[in-house]
């Protein structure tokens, strides 16, 4: 089921964005600060009013709970107000499904296990490190088994090893299964991450679509110079490219 925006405009932040995202793809949204990346992600998640549709249905017409079953959204900052256990926090991802407690517990544990975080289940989330918290937050989204995962800078507070592990998870989510595949959309700041791991890159510049193409095209040196205003060169082999200024 596709996720598509048609001439999406959010006054002062986004202007005339038309994109069609497909399941099974890992899409990276890149752009300088203030380009409208988070606004676009929020609109795709149905949190910002706009002409976005899931399959043939406009998001605005989907009941909120139905939308939440299909689209999992991971904001950049979500400091939990209360010191829930990691398990209780992950179980919140089951809220749109209204299933039994046993099913919710199983899904929460499966999501934590998939991210190698099952041992964190009984810990209070306020006691977790940044990397642990990021994994638990993602597990919360995974526990809901959404068809679309939309994450806003999920790698921002992570060190190299954790960022690589989380990227591998996103990659596996997009690739997994032979039936209904998951679509993954990430806002990322690191152009190297986008270049090496995404199937497709959307570049925003001043609220407009500057590029929407495979990474090698969308993040060409010319596009980088035009959008970020710096002259940079890609070095290294495909899959492990680095940007040198």
């Amino acid at each position: 089921m596709i996720l598509a925006a048609q001439n999406l405009t959010v006054p002062g932040r986004l202007s005339g964005i038309s994109i069609t995202l497909r399941p099974g793809e890992l899409t990276a949204i890149c752009g300088p600060n203030g380009a409208g990346k988070t606004t676009l992600l929020r609109a795709l998640a149905g949190l910002e009013p706009g002409p976005v549709r899931l399959g043939e249905t406009p998001l605005a017409q989907l009941p909120p709970r139905r939308r939440a079953q299909d689209i999992g959204y991971l904001p950049q900052h979500a400091h939990p107000a209360w010191n829930l256990t990691a398990e209780a926090l992950v179980r919140l991802g089951r809220l749109p499904h209204r299933t039994s407690r046993a099913e919710d517990d199983a899904a929460a544990l499966a999501a934590l296990t998939a991210l190698g975080a099952a041992h964190l289940a009984p810990r209070g989330v306020h006691t977790l490190s940044g990397g642990e918290r990021a994994r638990v937050a993602l597990a919360r989204v995974l526990a809901g088994n959404p068809r679309w995962i939309l994450a806003d800078e999920p790698l921002a507070s992570l060190d190299l090893a954790h960022a690589a592990a989380l990227l591998a998870h996103f990659r596996a989510l997009a690739d997994q299964g032979t039936g209904a595949k998951t679509g993954v959309v990430l806002v990322v700041h690191s152009l190297a991450h986008a270049m090496n791991h995404a199937d497709r890159v959307i570049v925003l510049h001043k609220g407009r679509l500057a590029a929407d193409a495979p990474p090698a095209v969308a993040l060409s040196e010319d596009v980088i110079e035009h959008v970020w205003g710096v002259r940079a060169a890609w070095t290294g082999p495909a899959g492990a490219r680095a940007l040198s200024l």
Binding site: R42, A45, L47, A68, G72, P75, L92, L95, G144
Partner: peptide
């Protein structure tokens, strides 16, 4: 209650979980 639980993660995340 369940909506208040979701609100633990902030209003925006609660909305993304289907809370109105």
């Amino acid at each position: 209650g369940p909506a208040l639980d979701a609100l633990t993660l902030g209003e925006e995340t609660a909305r993304s979980l289907g809370v109105e």
